[in-house]
Amino acid sequence: MGFDADTGRLDVTPESPAYGTKLRWSAPKLIEAANTTVRGANMRTLNVLSPAPGKAGPATAAAAPDPRPTMPVGPVHTRAPASDGYHQALAAHQATRPERHVDPTIAQAIEAQTHALRELSRRAFPDPDPDSIENTRAKRRRDAKATHAQALRRARAERAQRGSTAAGVQAPSDRRTA
């Protein structure tokens, strides 16, 4: 679009956002190439403007791709097959690669550690069965009811003891608590 020699700024309008992104990424190389190619250009910045809408001039109309999609003629290969040299180098590497020797004491230590960790996990999370959750809840409800009944019995006994003490009857000294 234009070059300002005073500030060293080149304004560029790309045809598409993709070209604009590519220009932004390669701006340092473009600035260096422009300064080495054109003596005295003193270009310092590349200002990439937003893409120009709509009108295609004669240069862009000629370069526009064919809108009809093309079908591939044969199978698409993403990589070239490996060369014979590659296969030879791979075979040589595999032939000279040392075998892994496992120390039996290390293997035993690994096995013991794995067993201990599984045992700790089993103790921490004893039964993942959902029925056990319901069993646990039922047991807690029974325990709570038993504790509640015991507390009621104790309260009644203490109330009866206070009533008999007030009437002049001596309370037994060996009273039991729950």
Rank of each mutant, 00 (worst) to 15 (best):
L30W: 00
H101G: 09
A124P: 05
A151T: 05
E99M: 11
A62L: 10
P81E: 13
R162Q: 09
A92N: 15
P81C: 08
I31N: 00
Y19E: 11
A116Y: 14
R122P: 00
A95Y: 06
G168E: 00
H115P: 01
S173E: 10
T105H: 11
A92G: 11
A63L: 11
H115N: 13
R140N: 06
R123I: 12
T96Y: 08
T60P: 00
A5I: 15
R39P: 06
S50T: 09
G74D: 15
A92E: 14
T96K: 12
P98A: 01
Y86I: 01
S173M: 09
D127E: 11
Q161A: 15
A56P: 00
R44H: 07
A41F: 00
A82E: 03
V12R: 05
A89F: 10
A155L: 14
R118L: 14
D11E: 13
T21F: 05
G54K: 03
R79D: 06
A56N: 06
A41V: 07
L49M: 13
R39Q: 11
A107C: 00
A62H: 01
A124Y: 06
R154C: 08
T165I: 11
V169Y: 08
P126H: 05
M43E: 03
A155P: 06
Q88G: 01
Q108H: 07
E32H: 09
T114S: 14
G85Y: 06
A171M: 09
P28W: 07
F125C: 05
A59I: 08
K55C: 06
P28G: 02
M1L: 10
D66V: 04
Q170P: 10
P72E: 12
V48H: 02
S16N: 13
G85N: 13
G163P: 01
A91P: 02
T105Y: 09
A157K: 06
G40T: 10
V169N: 08
L117Q: 12
R142N: 07
A82W: 04
A82N: 09
A63Y: 00
P17K: 08
G163Y: 03
A61H: 05
T70I: 14
V38L: 15
V38M: 10
I106R: 10
D127Q: 10
K145Y: 10
H148P: 04
G85T: 11
A62G: 01
P98E: 02
T147A: 13
A5T: 15
G85Q: 12
Q113N: 14
E15I: 03
A18Y: 06
P104A: 03
S164N: 09
P130K: 08
I31E: 05
G168Y: 01
Q170A: 11
R100N: 11
A138W: 01
A89S: 04
H93P: 01
R118K: 13
T36P: 05
N42G: 15
D103W: 09
T70C: 09
G74V: 15
P17Q: 10
P28F: 04
M1W: 01
S83F: 00
V169G: 02
P65C: 00
Q150T: 14
R97I: 02
A112F: 00
E134C: 05
P130V: 08
A155H: 11
D4I: 00
L120Q: 13
G20R: 02
K22G: 06
P98F: 02
S132I: 02
R154W: 10
A167Y: 02
D66F: 12
P81H: 08
G20N: 02
P14F: 07
R79L: 11
T105V: 08
Q113C: 07
A167F: 06
R176M: 14
P67D: 04
